[in-house]
Nucleic acid binder design. Structure first.
Lengths: 249, 249
DNA sequence: GCAGATGTTCCACGATGTGAAACGGCATCC
DNA sequence: GGATGCCGTTTCACATCGTGGAACATCTGC
Protein backbone atom coordinates (compact mmCIF):
# COMPACT_ATOMS: atom_id res chain seq x y z
CA UNK A 1 0.00 0.00 0.00
CA UNK A 2 2.05 2.85 -1.34
CA UNK A 3 1.43 6.21 0.24
CA UNK A 4 2.62 9.64 -0.79
CA UNK A 5 4.00 11.38 2.24
CA UNK A 6 3.77 14.97 1.04
CA UNK A 7 0.08 14.54 0.44
CA UNK A 8 -0.44 13.09 3.88
CA UNK A 9 1.47 16.00 5.31
CA UNK A 10 -0.55 18.53 3.34
CA UNK A 11 -3.67 17.12 4.88
CA UNK A 12 -2.38 17.23 8.40
CA UNK A 13 -1.68 20.90 7.78
CA UNK A 14 -5.25 21.37 6.62
CA UNK A 15 -6.49 19.48 9.62
CA UNK A 16 -4.74 21.88 11.94
CA UNK A 17 -6.19 24.80 10.03
CA UNK A 18 -9.69 23.41 10.36
CA UNK A 19 -9.49 24.32 14.03
CA UNK A 20 -8.99 27.94 13.06
CA UNK A 21 -6.49 30.27 11.41
CA UNK A 22 -2.85 29.67 12.29
CA UNK A 23 0.67 30.66 11.30
CA UNK A 24 3.57 28.65 9.98
CA UNK A 25 5.42 28.21 13.26
CA UNK A 26 2.23 27.25 15.00
CA UNK A 27 1.39 24.59 12.48
CA UNK A 28 4.96 23.41 12.41
CA UNK A 29 4.80 22.81 16.16
CA UNK A 30 1.47 21.00 16.02
CA UNK A 31 2.42 18.70 13.17
CA UNK A 32 6.07 18.07 14.08
CA UNK A 33 7.14 19.16 10.64
CA UNK A 34 9.99 21.56 9.94
CA UNK A 35 8.94 25.15 9.36
CA UNK A 36 10.36 25.17 5.88
CA UNK A 37 8.28 22.17 4.89
CA UNK A 38 5.13 23.68 6.31
CA UNK A 39 5.81 26.94 4.54
CA UNK A 40 6.31 25.13 1.26
CA UNK A 41 3.13 23.12 1.68
CA UNK A 42 1.17 26.23 2.52
CA UNK A 43 2.45 28.01 -0.58
CA UNK A 44 1.24 25.09 -2.64
CA UNK A 45 -2.13 24.98 -0.93
CA UNK A 46 -2.50 28.69 -1.43
CA UNK A 47 -1.85 28.40 -5.15
CA UNK A 48 -4.59 25.83 -5.36
CA UNK A 49 -6.93 27.91 -3.27
CA UNK A 50 -7.22 25.40 -0.44
CA UNK A 51 -5.98 28.05 1.97
CA UNK A 52 -6.18 31.84 1.92
CA UNK A 53 -4.47 34.72 3.53
CA UNK A 54 -6.25 37.97 4.03
CA UNK A 55 -4.74 41.28 3.01
CA UNK A 56 -2.94 42.25 6.14
CA UNK A 57 -3.09 38.94 7.94
CA UNK A 58 0.07 37.07 8.68
CA UNK A 59 -1.60 33.75 9.11
CA UNK A 60 -3.36 31.19 6.97
CA UNK A 61 -6.92 29.95 7.03
CA UNK A 62 -8.93 27.40 5.08
CA UNK A 63 -9.61 28.80 1.64
CA UNK A 64 -12.88 29.42 -0.10
CA UNK A 65 -11.36 27.57 -3.02
CA UNK A 66 -12.08 24.32 -1.21
CA UNK A 67 -15.70 24.76 -2.13
CA UNK A 68 -14.75 24.84 -5.73
CA UNK A 69 -12.55 21.81 -5.42
CA UNK A 70 -14.72 19.68 -3.26
CA UNK A 71 -18.14 20.75 -4.41
CA UNK A 72 -20.58 22.96 -2.68
CA UNK A 73 -21.39 21.04 0.43
CA UNK A 74 -18.27 18.97 0.54
CA UNK A 75 -18.10 15.26 0.90
CA UNK A 76 -21.54 14.21 2.06
CA UNK A 77 -22.98 15.63 -1.12
CA UNK A 78 -21.92 12.71 -3.23
CA UNK A 79 -22.74 10.23 -0.52
CA UNK A 80 -26.01 11.94 0.35
CA UNK A 81 -27.12 12.16 -3.23
CA UNK A 82 -26.49 8.54 -3.92
CA UNK A 83 -28.20 7.11 -0.84
CA UNK A 84 -31.25 9.31 -1.34
CA UNK A 85 -33.29 6.78 -3.34
CA UNK A 86 -32.54 4.13 -0.76
CA UNK A 87 -33.71 6.34 2.05
CA UNK A 88 -36.93 6.90 0.15
CA UNK A 89 -37.37 3.18 -0.21
CA UNK A 90 -36.89 2.68 3.49
CA UNK A 91 -39.20 5.51 4.47
CA UNK A 92 -41.88 4.02 2.26
CA UNK A 93 -41.47 0.44 3.40
CA UNK A 94 -41.24 1.27 7.09
CA UNK A 95 -43.63 4.20 7.12
CA UNK A 96 -41.15 6.15 9.22
CA UNK A 97 -38.44 8.74 8.68
CA UNK A 98 -35.14 7.50 7.24
CA UNK A 99 -31.85 9.35 7.35
CA UNK A 100 -28.14 9.35 6.69
CA UNK A 101 -25.44 10.18 9.24
CA UNK A 102 -21.67 10.42 8.88
CA UNK A 103 -18.94 10.22 11.51
CA UNK A 104 -17.08 13.37 12.48
CA UNK A 105 -14.35 12.29 14.89
CA UNK A 106 -16.24 11.62 18.14
CA UNK A 107 -19.58 12.87 16.87
CA UNK A 108 -22.14 11.92 14.31
CA UNK A 109 -23.46 14.39 11.78
CA UNK A 110 -27.03 13.92 10.61
CA UNK A 111 -26.91 14.77 6.93
CA UNK A 112 -30.20 13.97 5.25
CA UNK A 113 -33.63 12.86 6.30
CA UNK A 114 -36.55 11.60 4.27
CA UNK A 115 -39.82 12.21 6.02
CA UNK A 116 -42.33 9.62 7.01
CA UNK A 117 -45.61 9.66 5.08
CA UNK A 118 -47.47 9.79 8.40
CA UNK A 119 -48.87 13.06 9.72
CA UNK A 120 -47.38 12.41 13.14
CA UNK A 121 -43.64 12.03 12.74
CA UNK A 122 -40.25 12.77 14.14
CA UNK A 123 -38.75 16.14 13.55
CA UNK A 124 -36.09 16.60 10.90
CA UNK A 125 -32.73 16.07 12.52
CA UNK A 126 -30.63 17.13 9.52
CA UNK A 127 -27.70 19.25 10.50
CA UNK A 128 -27.63 17.98 14.05
CA UNK A 129 -24.46 16.69 15.60
CA UNK A 130 -24.62 14.06 18.31
CA UNK A 131 -22.10 12.16 20.45
CA UNK A 132 -21.42 8.67 19.13
CA UNK A 133 -22.90 6.73 22.01
CA UNK A 134 -26.38 8.23 22.19
CA UNK A 135 -27.81 7.48 18.76
CA UNK A 136 -28.07 4.21 16.85
CA UNK A 137 -26.09 5.55 13.92
CA UNK A 138 -23.20 6.47 16.15
CA UNK A 139 -23.37 3.12 17.88
CA UNK A 140 -23.30 1.02 14.73
CA UNK A 141 -20.41 3.12 13.49
CA UNK A 142 -18.58 2.52 16.76
CA UNK A 143 -19.29 -1.18 16.46
CA UNK A 144 -16.84 -1.10 13.57
CA UNK A 145 -14.12 0.77 15.37
CA UNK A 146 -10.83 -0.87 16.28
CA UNK A 147 -10.63 -1.62 19.98
CA UNK A 148 -8.04 1.02 20.70
CA UNK A 149 -10.11 3.84 19.29
CA UNK A 150 -13.11 2.58 21.21
CA UNK A 151 -11.20 2.65 24.47
CA UNK A 152 -10.13 6.23 23.83
CA UNK A 153 -13.76 7.13 23.46
CA UNK A 154 -15.06 5.27 26.45
CA UNK A 155 -12.64 6.59 29.03
CA UNK A 156 -14.05 10.06 28.51
CA UNK A 157 -17.14 11.14 30.45
CA UNK A 158 -20.25 10.06 28.58
CA UNK A 159 -23.22 12.36 28.52
CA UNK A 160 -26.75 11.06 29.04
CA UNK A 161 -29.49 12.53 26.88
CA UNK A 162 -32.47 10.83 28.48
CA UNK A 163 -32.84 8.57 31.45
CA UNK A 164 -32.51 5.62 29.07
CA UNK A 165 -29.16 6.60 27.60
CA UNK A 166 -26.61 3.87 28.23
CA UNK A 167 -23.42 5.39 29.59
CA UNK A 168 -21.75 2.46 31.30
CA UNK A 169 -18.63 1.54 29.26
CA UNK A 170 -18.92 -2.18 29.91
CA UNK A 171 -22.52 -2.24 28.92
CA UNK A 172 -21.76 -0.27 25.76
CA UNK A 173 -19.05 -2.70 24.77
CA UNK A 174 -21.40 -5.65 25.20
CA UNK A 175 -23.97 -3.90 23.14
CA UNK A 176 -21.57 -3.03 20.34
CA UNK A 177 -20.64 -6.69 20.05
CA UNK A 178 -24.26 -7.58 19.48
CA UNK A 179 -24.71 -4.73 17.01
CA UNK A 180 -21.67 -5.76 15.08
CA UNK A 181 -22.78 -9.36 14.88
CA UNK A 182 -26.30 -8.44 13.78
CA UNK A 183 -25.24 -5.74 11.35
CA UNK A 184 -27.71 -3.28 12.84
CA UNK A 185 -28.75 -1.92 16.20
CA UNK A 186 -31.85 -0.69 18.02
CA UNK A 187 -32.01 2.18 20.45
CA UNK A 188 -35.06 2.84 22.63
CA UNK A 189 -35.70 6.44 23.68
CA UNK A 190 -32.03 7.02 24.37
CA UNK A 191 -31.31 10.22 22.53
CA UNK A 192 -34.79 11.70 22.75
CA UNK A 193 -37.82 10.70 24.81
CA UNK A 194 -40.47 9.08 22.68
CA UNK A 195 -38.28 8.09 19.77
CA UNK A 196 -37.03 4.63 18.86
CA UNK A 197 -34.47 4.05 16.12
CA UNK A 198 -32.55 1.43 14.19
CA UNK A 199 -29.40 1.98 12.20
CA UNK A 200 -27.02 -0.01 10.00
CA UNK A 201 -23.50 1.04 9.09
CA UNK A 202 -22.22 1.88 5.60
CA UNK A 203 -18.84 0.27 5.16
CA UNK A 204 -16.06 0.83 2.71
CA UNK A 205 -14.35 -2.13 1.16
CA UNK A 206 -11.98 -2.52 4.03
CA UNK A 207 -14.83 -2.67 6.48
CA UNK A 208 -14.35 0.78 7.94
CA UNK A 209 -17.52 2.75 8.65
CA UNK A 210 -18.09 5.77 6.45
CA UNK A 211 -21.60 6.49 7.60
CA UNK A 212 -24.85 4.97 8.79
CA UNK A 213 -28.43 4.80 7.64
CA UNK A 214 -31.20 4.88 10.17
CA UNK A 215 -34.94 4.81 10.60
CA UNK A 216 -36.63 6.47 13.52
CA UNK A 217 -40.20 6.76 14.59
CA UNK A 218 -42.42 7.61 17.54
CA UNK A 219 -42.07 5.06 20.32
CA UNK A 220 -45.82 4.40 20.57
CA UNK A 221 -45.97 2.84 17.12
CA UNK A 222 -42.35 2.03 16.19
CA UNK A 223 -41.39 -0.72 16.01
CA UNK A 224 -44.83 -1.44 17.50
CA UNK A 225 -46.08 -4.87 16.58
CA UNK A 226 -43.54 -5.11 13.79
CA UNK A 227 -40.70 -7.44 14.55
CA UNK A 228 -37.60 -5.36 15.39
CA UNK A 229 -35.43 -7.91 13.67
CA UNK A 230 -37.44 -7.79 10.49
CA UNK A 231 -37.03 -4.05 10.31
CA UNK A 232 -33.34 -4.46 11.00
CA UNK A 233 -33.06 -6.95 8.17
CA UNK A 234 -34.84 -4.49 5.91
CA UNK A 235 -32.19 -1.92 6.69
CA UNK A 236 -29.32 -4.31 6.12
CA UNK A 237 -30.83 -5.41 2.84
CA UNK A 238 -31.10 -1.82 1.63
CA UNK A 239 -27.51 -1.08 2.56
CA UNK A 240 -26.38 -4.13 0.68
CA UNK A 241 -28.34 -3.03 -2.35
CA UNK A 242 -26.74 0.37 -2.11
CA UNK A 243 -23.19 -0.87 -1.99
CA UNK A 244 -23.84 -3.18 -4.92
CA UNK A 245 -25.16 -0.44 -7.11
CA UNK A 246 -22.66 0.97 -9.58
CA UNK A 247 -22.78 4.74 -9.43
CA UNK A 248 -22.30 6.91 -12.46
CA UNK A 249 -23.49 10.41 -11.60
CA UNK B 1 7.23 30.34 -4.97
CA UNK B 2 7.99 26.73 -4.32
CA UNK B 3 5.20 24.33 -5.03
CA UNK B 4 4.87 20.66 -4.20
CA UNK B 5 3.71 18.86 -7.28
CA UNK B 6 2.31 15.73 -5.68
CA UNK B 7 0.01 17.84 -3.54
CA UNK B 8 -1.20 19.78 -6.55
CA UNK B 9 -1.83 16.51 -8.31
CA UNK B 10 -3.70 15.06 -5.37
CA UNK B 11 -6.05 18.01 -5.49
CA UNK B 12 -6.68 17.72 -9.19
CA UNK B 13 -7.70 14.15 -8.50
CA UNK B 14 -10.09 15.34 -5.82
CA UNK B 15 -11.42 17.95 -8.17
CA UNK B 16 -12.30 15.32 -10.71
CA UNK B 17 -13.99 13.28 -8.01
CA UNK B 18 -16.07 16.25 -6.93
CA UNK B 19 -17.97 15.82 -10.18
CA UNK B 20 -18.94 12.33 -9.09
CA UNK B 21 -17.48 8.89 -8.43
CA UNK B 22 -14.87 7.73 -10.90
CA UNK B 23 -12.30 5.04 -11.48
CA UNK B 24 -8.55 5.17 -11.82
CA UNK B 25 -8.41 5.06 -15.62
CA UNK B 26 -11.09 7.67 -15.86
CA UNK B 27 -9.28 10.05 -13.57
CA UNK B 28 -6.01 9.29 -15.25
CA UNK B 29 -7.48 10.38 -18.58
CA UNK B 30 -9.02 13.55 -17.20
CA UNK B 31 -5.92 14.69 -15.40
CA UNK B 32 -3.28 13.55 -17.88
CA UNK B 33 -1.49 11.65 -15.17
CA UNK B 34 -0.23 8.09 -15.51
CA UNK B 35 -2.52 5.45 -14.09
CA UNK B 36 0.08 4.31 -11.62
CA UNK B 37 0.42 7.78 -10.20
CA UNK B 38 -3.30 8.20 -9.88
CA UNK B 39 -3.60 4.84 -8.19
CA UNK B 40 -0.89 5.75 -5.72
CA UNK B 41 -2.47 9.09 -4.95
CA UNK B 42 -5.85 7.48 -4.43
CA UNK B 43 -4.38 4.93 -2.03
CA UNK B 44 -2.96 7.78 -0.02
CA UNK B 45 -6.18 9.75 -0.06
CA UNK B 46 -8.05 6.67 1.00
CA UNK B 47 -5.78 6.13 3.96
CA UNK B 48 -6.47 9.66 5.06
CA UNK B 49 -10.18 9.29 4.49
CA UNK B 50 -10.40 11.94 1.80
CA UNK B 51 -11.85 9.37 -0.55
CA UNK B 52 -13.84 6.18 0.05
CA UNK B 53 -14.68 3.04 -1.79
CA UNK B 54 -17.81 1.16 -1.04
CA UNK B 55 -17.82 -2.56 -0.39
CA UNK B 56 -18.35 -3.89 -3.86
CA UNK B 57 -17.67 -0.73 -5.80
CA UNK B 58 -14.69 -0.58 -8.06
CA UNK B 59 -14.51 3.17 -8.13
CA UNK B 60 -13.63 5.97 -5.78
CA UNK B 61 -15.72 8.81 -4.39
CA UNK B 62 -15.11 11.75 -2.08
CA UNK B 63 -14.83 10.46 1.43
CA UNK B 64 -16.86 11.28 4.48
CA UNK B 65 -13.52 11.73 6.21
CA UNK B 66 -13.21 15.09 4.55
CA UNK B 67 -15.73 16.41 7.02
CA UNK B 68 -13.53 15.31 9.82
CA UNK B 69 -10.44 16.76 8.24
CA UNK B 70 -11.81 20.03 7.08
CA UNK B 71 -14.40 20.69 9.73
CA UNK B 72 -18.08 20.18 9.50
CA UNK B 73 -19.07 22.63 6.84
CA UNK B 74 -15.66 22.99 5.29
CA UNK B 75 -14.09 26.21 4.22
CA UNK B 76 -16.81 28.84 4.54
CA UNK B 77 -17.20 27.98 8.19
CA UNK B 78 -14.02 29.73 9.21
CA UNK B 79 -14.62 32.59 6.84
CA UNK B 80 -18.29 32.84 7.72
CA UNK B 81 -17.67 32.76 11.43
CA UNK B 82 -15.14 35.53 11.29
CA UNK B 83 -17.13 37.92 9.12
CA UNK B 84 -20.29 37.41 11.17
CA UNK B 85 -19.75 40.39 13.51
CA UNK B 86 -19.04 42.63 10.55
CA UNK B 87 -22.23 41.54 8.84
CA UNK B 88 -24.12 42.39 12.00
CA UNK B 89 -22.52 45.81 12.05
CA UNK B 90 -23.55 46.41 8.47
CA UNK B 91 -27.09 45.17 8.97
CA UNK B 92 -27.45 47.51 11.91
CA UNK B 93 -25.95 50.54 10.25
CA UNK B 94 -27.78 50.11 6.97
CA UNK B 95 -31.00 48.72 8.35
CA UNK B 96 -30.99 46.05 5.68
CA UNK B 97 -29.90 42.44 5.29
CA UNK B 98 -26.16 41.79 4.97
CA UNK B 99 -24.58 38.61 3.67
CA UNK B 100 -21.45 36.76 2.64
CA UNK B 101 -20.91 35.03 -0.69
CA UNK B 102 -18.02 32.98 -1.98
CA UNK B 103 -16.99 32.16 -5.55
CA UNK B 104 -17.52 28.63 -6.82
CA UNK B 105 -15.97 28.53 -10.29
CA UNK B 106 -18.51 30.36 -12.46
CA UNK B 107 -21.10 30.74 -9.72
CA UNK B 108 -21.47 32.50 -6.43
CA UNK B 109 -22.53 30.70 -3.28
CA UNK B 110 -24.52 32.69 -0.74
CA UNK B 111 -23.20 31.48 2.58
CA UNK B 112 -24.59 33.58 5.42
CA UNK B 113 -27.15 36.30 5.83
CA UNK B 114 -27.88 38.56 8.76
CA UNK B 115 -31.44 39.77 8.70
CA UNK B 116 -32.55 43.34 8.58
CA UNK B 117 -34.25 44.67 11.72
CA UNK B 118 -37.20 45.81 9.57
CA UNK B 119 -40.37 43.71 9.41
CA UNK B 120 -40.42 43.98 5.63
CA UNK B 121 -37.24 42.51 4.31
CA UNK B 122 -35.68 40.40 1.62
CA UNK B 123 -35.78 36.66 1.97
CA UNK B 124 -32.81 34.72 3.26
CA UNK B 125 -30.71 33.74 0.29
CA UNK B 126 -28.29 31.49 2.18
CA UNK B 127 -27.49 28.34 0.28
CA UNK B 128 -28.42 29.83 -3.05
CA UNK B 129 -26.05 29.59 -5.97
CA UNK B 130 -26.14 32.28 -8.65
CA UNK B 131 -24.24 32.95 -11.89
CA UNK B 132 -21.49 35.53 -11.44
CA UNK B 133 -22.96 38.23 -13.63
CA UNK B 134 -26.40 38.61 -12.09
CA UNK B 135 -25.63 39.58 -8.50
CA UNK B 136 -23.44 42.33 -7.08
CA UNK B 137 -21.26 39.89 -5.15
CA UNK B 138 -20.48 37.96 -8.29
CA UNK B 139 -19.78 41.15 -10.19
CA UNK B 140 -17.34 42.60 -7.68
CA UNK B 141 -15.59 39.25 -7.56
CA UNK B 142 -15.36 39.25 -11.34
CA UNK B 143 -14.00 42.77 -11.23
CA UNK B 144 -10.89 41.20 -9.71
CA UNK B 145 -10.51 38.48 -12.26
CA UNK B 146 -7.62 38.44 -14.72
CA UNK B 147 -8.74 39.42 -18.21
CA UNK B 148 -8.34 35.96 -19.64
CA UNK B 149 -10.65 34.33 -17.12
CA UNK B 150 -13.18 37.08 -17.69
CA UNK B 151 -13.18 36.46 -21.42
CA UNK B 152 -13.78 32.77 -20.87
CA UNK B 153 -16.81 33.66 -18.84
CA UNK B 154 -18.23 36.25 -21.18
CA UNK B 155 -18.14 34.22 -24.37
CA UNK B 156 -20.64 31.82 -22.86
CA UNK B 157 -24.35 32.58 -23.12
CA UNK B 158 -25.40 34.80 -20.21
CA UNK B 159 -28.73 34.20 -18.58
CA UNK B 160 -31.03 37.09 -17.68
CA UNK B 161 -32.87 36.86 -14.36
CA UNK B 162 -35.04 39.93 -14.69
CA UNK B 163 -35.57 42.41 -17.48
CA UNK B 164 -32.88 44.55 -15.88
CA UNK B 165 -30.13 41.95 -15.90
CA UNK B 166 -27.17 43.19 -17.91
CA UNK B 167 -26.04 40.48 -20.32
CA UNK B 168 -24.14 42.42 -22.95
CA UNK B 169 -20.43 41.51 -22.61
CA UNK B 170 -19.15 44.96 -23.53
CA UNK B 171 -21.46 46.62 -21.08
CA UNK B 172 -20.43 44.19 -18.34
CA UNK B 173 -16.75 44.91 -18.95
CA UNK B 174 -17.33 48.65 -18.68
CA UNK B 175 -19.22 48.13 -15.51
CA UNK B 176 -16.58 45.91 -13.94
CA UNK B 177 -14.00 48.62 -14.56
CA UNK B 178 -16.07 51.07 -12.57
CA UNK B 179 -16.70 48.53 -9.82
CA UNK B 180 -13.02 47.75 -9.55
CA UNK B 181 -12.08 51.42 -9.36
CA UNK B 182 -14.72 52.17 -6.74
CA UNK B 183 -14.12 49.04 -4.67
CA UNK B 184 -17.84 48.23 -4.61
CA UNK B 185 -20.77 47.93 -7.00
CA UNK B 186 -24.51 48.53 -7.10
CA UNK B 187 -27.06 46.38 -8.84
CA UNK B 188 -30.65 47.49 -9.38
CA UNK B 189 -33.31 44.79 -9.58
CA UNK B 190 -31.10 42.62 -11.72
CA UNK B 191 -31.26 39.27 -9.97
CA UNK B 192 -34.73 39.68 -8.49
CA UNK B 193 -37.45 42.22 -9.12
CA UNK B 194 -37.78 44.66 -6.28
CA UNK B 195 -34.35 44.15 -4.76
CA UNK B 196 -31.35 46.47 -4.94
CA UNK B 197 -27.92 45.44 -3.67
CA UNK B 198 -24.37 46.59 -3.12
CA UNK B 199 -21.33 44.41 -2.66
CA UNK B 200 -17.63 44.77 -1.98
CA UNK B 201 -15.03 42.05 -2.56
CA UNK B 202 -12.94 40.32 0.10
CA UNK B 203 -9.38 40.06 -1.17
CA UNK B 204 -6.47 37.94 -0.13
CA UNK B 205 -3.03 39.47 0.16
CA UNK B 206 -2.32 39.06 -3.50
CA UNK B 207 -5.49 40.85 -4.45
CA UNK B 208 -7.42 37.76 -5.55
CA UNK B 209 -11.07 37.65 -4.54
CA UNK B 210 -12.00 35.04 -1.95
CA UNK B 211 -15.52 36.24 -1.37
CA UNK B 212 -17.80 39.24 -1.21
CA UNK B 213 -19.93 40.98 1.35
CA UNK B 214 -23.22 42.49 0.31
CA UNK B 215 -26.22 44.41 1.55
CA UNK B 216 -29.58 44.08 -0.12
CA UNK B 217 -32.92 45.66 0.52
CA UNK B 218 -36.32 46.30 -1.03
CA UNK B 219 -36.04 48.67 -4.00
CA UNK B 220 -38.71 51.03 -2.65
CA UNK B 221 -36.56 52.10 0.27
CA UNK B 222 -33.02 50.98 -0.55
CA UNK B 223 -30.89 52.91 -1.18
CA UNK B 224 -33.82 55.35 -1.12
CA UNK B 225 -32.74 58.80 -0.15
CA UNK B 226 -29.48 57.48 1.18
CA UNK B 227 -26.52 58.27 -1.03
CA UNK B 228 -25.51 55.04 -2.84
CA UNK B 229 -21.89 56.06 -2.58
CA UNK B 230 -22.07 56.56 1.14
CA UNK B 231 -23.45 53.09 1.59
CA UNK B 232 -20.76 51.76 -0.69
CA UNK B 233 -18.12 53.48 1.40
CA UNK B 234 -19.64 51.94 4.52
CA UNK B 235 -19.19 48.52 3.00
CA UNK B 236 -15.62 49.17 1.95
CA UNK B 237 -14.79 50.48 5.38
CA UNK B 238 -16.18 47.37 7.05
CA UNK B 239 -14.21 45.10 4.73
CA UNK B 240 -11.05 47.03 5.53
CA UNK B 241 -11.74 46.64 9.21
CA UNK B 242 -12.26 42.95 8.73
CA UNK B 243 -9.01 42.35 6.92
CA UNK B 244 -7.11 44.34 9.52
CA UNK B 245 -8.44 42.35 12.39
CA UNK B 246 -6.15 39.65 13.66
CA UNK B 247 -8.10 36.44 14.10
CA UNK B 248 -7.37 33.99 16.82
CA UNK B 249 -10.27 31.55 16.97
C1' DG C 1 -10.98 -18.89 -24.56
C1' DC C 2 -9.74 -14.50 -26.02
C1' DA C 3 -9.98 -9.46 -26.12
C1' DG C 4 -10.39 -5.45 -23.65
C1' DA C 5 -11.52 -3.45 -19.80
C1' DT C 6 -10.35 -2.64 -14.90
C1' DG C 7 -6.91 -1.44 -10.73
C1' DT C 8 -2.43 -2.77 -8.52
C1' DT C 9 2.46 -3.78 -8.03
C1' DC C 10 7.34 -3.68 -9.39
C1' DC C 11 11.49 -1.34 -9.85
C1' DA C 12 15.42 1.46 -11.87
C1' DC C 13 15.92 6.18 -12.34
C1' DG C 14 16.48 10.87 -11.17
C1' DA C 15 13.52 14.66 -10.49
C1' DT C 16 11.57 16.38 -6.55
C1' DG C 17 10.77 17.14 -1.95
C1' DT C 18 13.42 17.75 2.07
C1' DG C 19 15.10 20.38 6.31
C1' DA C 20 19.13 22.82 8.74
C1' DA C 21 20.66 26.98 8.44
C1' DA C 22 20.88 31.61 6.70
C1' DC C 23 18.03 35.59 5.62
C1' DG C 24 15.11 39.73 5.91
C1' DG C 25 11.06 41.99 8.34
C1' DC C 26 8.71 43.57 12.02
C1' DA C 27 7.74 44.10 16.80
C1' DT C 28 9.04 44.81 21.49
C1' DC C 29 12.02 46.01 25.16
C1' DC C 30 15.66 48.25 27.76
C1' DG D 1 18.78 53.17 18.67
C1' DG D 2 20.66 48.99 19.01
C1' DA D 3 19.73 44.50 20.70
C1' DT D 4 16.69 40.71 20.93
C1' DG D 5 13.11 37.76 19.79
C1' DC D 6 9.66 36.25 16.85
C1' DC D 7 7.84 35.75 12.41
C1' DG D 8 7.66 33.57 7.43
C1' DT D 9 10.54 32.85 3.36
C1' DT D 10 14.51 31.37 0.72
C1' DT D 11 18.55 28.87 -0.17
C1' DC D 12 21.05 24.76 -1.33
C1' DA D 13 23.47 20.15 -1.06
C1' DC D 14 21.72 15.79 -0.36
C1' DA D 15 19.20 11.47 -0.99
C1' DT D 16 14.76 10.34 -0.13
C1' DC D 17 10.76 9.84 -2.24
C1' DG D 18 7.77 10.11 -5.91
C1' DT D 19 7.65 8.73 -10.55
C1' DG D 20 5.79 6.21 -14.66
C1' DG D 21 6.48 2.52 -18.07
C1' DA D 22 5.74 -2.10 -18.13
C1' DA D 23 4.34 -6.39 -16.20
C1' DC D 24 0.76 -8.29 -13.45
C1' DA D 25 -3.63 -9.84 -11.70
C1' DT D 26 -8.82 -9.82 -12.07
C1' DC D 27 -13.12 -9.36 -14.06
C1' DT D 28 -16.73 -8.82 -17.95
C1' DG D 29 -18.55 -9.57 -22.11
C1' DC D 30 -18.19 -10.95 -26.72
Amino acid sequence: MATVQSVVRAFSVLEVLSAGPAGVSDISAQTDLPKSTVSRLLSTLERIGAVDRLLEGTNYRLGSGLIEILGTSGAPKTLGRSVQPHLEQLAMKSGEAAGLAVPDSYSVQYVTQVESPEPVQVRDYSGLSLPMHVGPSGLVIMSRWPLELLQHYLVRPLEAFTKHTVTDPMEIIERLKRFRAAGYGWVYEEFAEGINSVAAPLLDRRGSPIGAIHIHGPAFRFPGKGDPDRIGALLVEEVRRYSLRAESA
